[in-house]
């Protein structure tokens, strides 16, 4: 198993990803897989929800899927 703490689920990390390109919730979850962050599934969902609420990203439908992104 990968060591935990390899990837950190932080506001800065989420901001960085969403500034690069629009992402779905699934895309984001893939970036912060529990096996890489050491967080539980619930903690991951809660943390991402809080961070997305705070960042309040733009939303855009691409291929019928909601994507989030941040304008610089």
């Amino acid at each position: 198993a990968a060591s935990s703490g390899e990837v950190q689920l932080t506001e800065e990390a989420v901001r960085r990803y969403l500034s690069r390109k629009p992402m779905t919730t699934k895309d984001l979850l893939k970036k912060f897989q529990t096996k890489r962050t050491g967080l539980s599934s619930d903690a991951t969902v809660n943390a991402l929800a809080q961070l997305l609420k705070r960042l309040d990203p733009e939303r855009k439908l691409i291929a019928d899927k909601m994507h989030f992104f941040l304008k610089e």
Binding site: V45, L48, A49, M66
Partner: peptide
Amino acid sequence: SSSEADEMAAALEAELNHFM
């Protein structure tokens, strides 16, 4: 597993739709 990822995505979207 992909089903766990699906569940997490669904839970996250539910949280966000609640708010936004």
